[in-house]
Simulated assay, not measured.
Amino acid sequence: MAKPPLIFKRSTNALLNYLDASVAVGDLLPSESRMAELTQGSRTAVRSALAYLHNRGLIAGLDDRRLLRKPQDDDYFEETELQSGAVRIQEVLMERIYRNDLPPGAAFSEAELARAAGASTISVREFLIGFSRFGLIEKKPQGGWRLCAFDRTFAMELEQVRRMFEMAAVEQLLSLPPGHPAFDQVTELVARHEQLKAGLPDNYEQFPALDRELHTFLIGLLNNRFAFSLNDVVSLVFHYHYQWDKELEKPRIEQAVLEHLALLRALAKRDRAAAQAAMNKHLDSARSTMLDAVLNRSPDAAQHQSAH
């Protein structure tokens, strides 16, 4: 039997969150078009989600859409089920880079990445071939792959495009109507950042995943395939550089968490000026950190360090 499509699972979980937060037992669900808007999916996906809710006993029927009970944990699809094979592969690659298992120039094979991601070697090969167009990984002539370093020109070009998309994402979020589910996610991200901040510096290794979640959430609001592709590169590069200078890693992460919180709090208040300023400050910090990493990684810097 074929697996249910990702858009159905994501729409179902989003709808369950809405029912839990905003619909009382006995009340009617909103219209299909409204549910499609709330779940950021299609009406087809909403109809599949409604059939699922009916089978689970949450609603009376496909015509009588009254909520019979509140959602429970086992009604939701697991987070791992909401990820495509490419997402799992990228997360494994990111994790290995962040743990310093893959420093610049390190080689790795399709088979080892496939085992770690629980994916087929064909899926891994397709992902790596697609990702290699950005110049961050390259295929070795004798087989396998190598992680590449990047230079100042690459860093500046990436930062310029990143700023364009992420500032547009801030505007997109602030244009949504009050009560939109996206603001519930903002509130959740605020709470999770505050929890992370309270545990610093002991739990700093949790930051990359939360950082990627925040920026993926913002970019996702644009519903732009080019922005999604860029976000993959940004996630890799802007954590790739952290491992180049472990000495300053923790204070950089502490600063980034504070910048995230300033942005999220401004978004939660729908304060456009504060949100724009916070995002610009965060992007400025990320650019400065990345360019410092590139400079410190240059051959001249390496020779200077070896001379001392």
Rank of each mutant, 00 (worst) to 15 (best):
E188A: 15
S132P: 03
P181G: 13
F217E: 06
D202N: 15
P201D: 10
S84H: 08
P299C: 11
L136H: 06
N203Y: 02
Q185D: 10
S33E: 09
P4N: 15
N296Y: 02
T289G: 13
L258Y: 04
A168C: 10
R65T: 06
R69P: 03
L283T: 05
T12K: 00
N296T: 14
L214C: 01
L173V: 08
H282Q: 04
A168V: 04
V170G: 03
R225Y: 05
P208C: 11
L53V: 12
S84W: 08
D284W: 01
K246Q: 14
G220H: 09
P177H: 09
D232N: 14
E81C: 14
A268S: 12
I219Y: 03
L222R: 07
A107E: 11
S31C: 06
E110R: 14
R133C: 01
R162E: 04
S31D: 08
A114D: 03
P104I: 14
V257C: 04
L196H: 06
Y76I: 07
H241Y: 14
L174P: 08
M164P: 11
A51N: 15
G130E: 00
L93W: 00
A24Q: 04
Q142I: 12
R69W: 02
Y204F: 12
Q255A: 13
A60R: 13
V190D: 03
E188H: 10
L68Q: 02
N223L: 07
A111W: 05
E249W: 11
D232G: 15
E37D: 12
T121H: 10
E205G: 13
V25G: 02
R10H: 04
F150M: 06
A86D: 06
A169S: 09
A155I: 04
E95G: 15
A60V: 12
S22V: 06
I97H: 00
D74M: 11
L236I: 03
I129S: 09
E79V: 14
M164H: 14
F150L: 12
V170A: 05
F165L: 06
R270I: 09
R56Y: 05
P103C: 09
F150N: 11
K9V: 03
E32T: 08
E138P: 03
T289W: 11
M35W: 03
R133I: 02
S285P: 08
V92A: 10
T39R: 05
W145S: 12
L19M: 13
G220F: 10
